Computed example of a mutant assay.
Amino acid sequence: MAEIIATESISLDGVMQAPGSPDEDTRGGFEHGGWAAPFASDDQMAIMGEGMSQAGGMLFGRRTYDQLVGFWLSNPAPNPFTDHIRETQKWVASRTSAPLEHPNSTLLTGEAVETVARLRDEAEGALTILGSGELVRALHEAGLVDGFVLLVHPVTIGSGQRLFGEGGRHDLALRRADTTSTGVVIAQYRAS
Score class of each variant (00 low, 15 high):
84 H>C: 12
168 G>C: 01
64 T>F: 03
152 V>Q: 01
157 I>C: 01
96 T>R: 13
85 I>C: 13
184 V>T: 05
138 A>H: 05
177 A>W: 05
184 V>R: 03
153 H>C: 04
91 W>Y: 15
124 E>Q: 12
148 F>I: 03
164 F>V: 09
166 E>T: 09
98 A>G: 15
74 S>D: 13
106 T>K: 14
92 V>M: 08
159 S>F: 08
166 E>L: 08
95 R>T: 15
77 A>T: 14
139 L>P: 08
133 G>L: 00
77 A>D: 15
48 M>C: 07
116 V>D: 01
175 R>E: 08
61 G>N: 07
126 A>C: 08
59 L>Q: 05
67 Q>F: 09
139 L>F: 07
53 S>L: 08
85 I>L: 15
75 N>A: 10
68 L>W: 14
62 R>A: 06
63 R>Q: 11
86 R>T: 15
109 T>L: 10
159 S>D: 12
115 T>S: 14
184 V>G: 00
84 H>P: 10
131 G>P: 12
96 T>S: 15
135 L>I: 12
119 L>Y: 10
126 A>Q: 12
73 L>G: 02
107 L>W: 10
89 Q>G: 14
179 T>M: 12
107 L>C: 06
129 I>N: 01
58 M>S: 02
52 M>C: 04
150 L>Y: 03
175 R>K: 10
180 T>S: 04
75 N>P: 05
108 L>R: 14
149 V>S: 09
57 G>H: 01
145 V>P: 01
153 H>Q: 01
71 F>K: 01
123 A>T: 13
105 S>I: 05
156 T>C: 12
144 L>G: 00
111 E>L: 13
84 H>S: 12
136 V>R: 00
71 F>T: 06
165 G>N: 00
63 R>T: 10
150 L>V: 03
170 H>Y: 06
149 V>Q: 12
68 L>V: 14
109 T>K: 08
125 G>S: 04
95 R>D: 13
121 D>G: 13
141 E>S: 14
181 S>Q: 09
151 L>A: 13
149 V>E: 11
